[in-house]
Simulated assay, not measured.
Amino acid sequence: MVPESEFISILAALLTGLMLSVGIEQFMIPRPPLRRHWAAWALHGGLWLLAYALIVLLLGRPWFSAAVVSAFLLMLVLVNNAKVNALYEPFVFQDYEYFTDAIRHPRLYIPFLGWGKFLGSATGFVLAVAIGFWGESTPAQRWMLSGQLGAIVVIFFLGLLLLLAGRQKKLPVSFNPERDVCALGLLASLWRYAEEERAPLAAVSPFGFHVHRKSDNDLPHLVAVQSESFFDPRSLYPGIFSGMLAEFDRLKGDAVAYGKLKVPAWGANTVRTEFAFLSGIGDDKLGVHRFNPYRAIAAASDVSSLAAYLKCLGYRTICIHPYPASFYRRNRVYPAWILTNLWIYVPLTGCSAMALILATLP
């Protein structure tokens, strides 16, 4: 049997953490209403209990473990709010690579956060861990089924039952992150988007057909530039000097066609635009894969592309991108799409990422 004091400590920390999770979620933008489907609450509770059980198993300190899970949830809420303010889109499961990319490519993310804030956050984390370990001791019967381990097993299976109950309902998602977060809450929406991630990419590219190779004399060289920071701002405010883009206006005058381009991104996430250009597939046909289509391509690698079409015509296709080849798994996606990678490393602080696609004759 679990000693009464240990049982009370684990139960009190569990209930406090669960109530805190509901309160923390209310700081989200947009704020999910408390009135939602029971299955969404089951997923919320199940995920929290499983995380809590695993952290208690690792640390042996119930209150500190509840604080760790609560801090992680608060971090997700803060990241969500930052993304909404900057990109007008809530945090979704497919964004988890933000965290792994920040570890693999720190010089892309840390300069925008600021080294002072980064070092301050790291120091605060280390101090919080030290205080947690110093302020709460582990029980004597930690690894006994009659002690803390038995309570952890009960909590784990309770969380698992809640998770299985929530999964049975198969809550619908619209792939509109704002609508789904408001309908399901943060944790349930993350879970449902993770489930949908397992579905294969079923969209068909319009470039999926074969053509007869033409004479080299009939083929011009082609260059496509994706520059995510360039646009014509003069339509936003009449006070902007009309001649500020005189050369751009001259190029438009010489062009066969020009105009505004509708893209599936705002402010960042230009990999979505890159995918749409190379595959010819609109985001409305991608389901949950619209948020990071290259991950699905890396797994499937059988989606046709503009590069493959040009290859059939006799072109040699090359891509130049200013960052490591592993970023967004381009080192796996581009070879599958018959694009040769040429990577150029440039300082990215204050510089826009730019993809340059070249199609040249052999």
Rank of each mutant, 00 (worst) to 15 (best):
A325H: 03
L261Q: 09
L358F: 14
R107C: 01
P238M: 05
V129Y: 00
I29G: 03
L57E: 12
F27S: 14
S121C: 11
L18E: 06
V79K: 03
L184T: 10
T317M: 13
L74Y: 03
G259N: 02
V288C: 10
F125T: 14
V69R: 10
G243C: 04
P347Q: 06
A122C: 11
P347H: 06
R234I: 11
L161D: 05
R35S: 12
F99G: 02
P172S: 08
V223T: 13
L14T: 15
S304M: 00
W41M: 07
S65G: 05
L245P: 02
V204Y: 07
Q226M: 15
N176R: 09
A307H: 10
G150C: 05
S242I: 02
F133K: 10
P324W: 05
T317V: 15
G282V: 02
T16K: 01
D302G: 02
F231R: 08
M144L: 12
L163D: 01
L163K: 00
R36M: 12
R290N: 00
S5R: 13
A82M: 05
S326L: 06
K169A: 14
P106Y: 00
G287V: 03
R234Q: 07
N81Y: 05
I344Q: 06
R61S: 08
P200L: 07
A300V: 04
A325L: 09
A298Q: 14
A268Q: 07
A102F: 11
S305L: 09
L162W: 01
N292L: 07
M244E: 08
N217D: 15
V263R: 05
M75H: 12
L356E: 06
F91M: 12
P200F: 08
L251S: 06
D218G: 04
E274P: 06
P177T: 07
L219K: 15
A12W: 03
P106N: 03
F64V: 09
R36I: 09
S227N: 14
V173Q: 07
P90V: 04
L49F: 00
G314S: 01
F91I: 06
A13D: 09
M28N: 13
F327Q: 03
V126M: 12
F175H: 15
Y309F: 15
V204K: 14
L47M: 12
K262C: 03
E228T: 08
R179N: 11
K169L: 09
Y309T: 05
I297K: 00
F156K: 04
N85T: 10
A307D: 06
V92Q: 04
I24M: 10
A336F: 08
R213E: 13
A67Q: 04
L74M: 13
E97N: 08
V288W: 02
V173G: 11
D232Q: 01
Y315S: 03
H289K: 05
Y258R: 01
Y88T: 12
W48Y: 15
F248T: 11
T270L: 03
Y52I: 09
N176A: 11
A255H: 09
A51G: 14
G150L: 02
L310E: 03
I55A: 00
Y237D: 15
E136L: 07
P177C: 08
R332W: 08
N217S: 15
E97L: 07
H210C: 02
P362W: 04
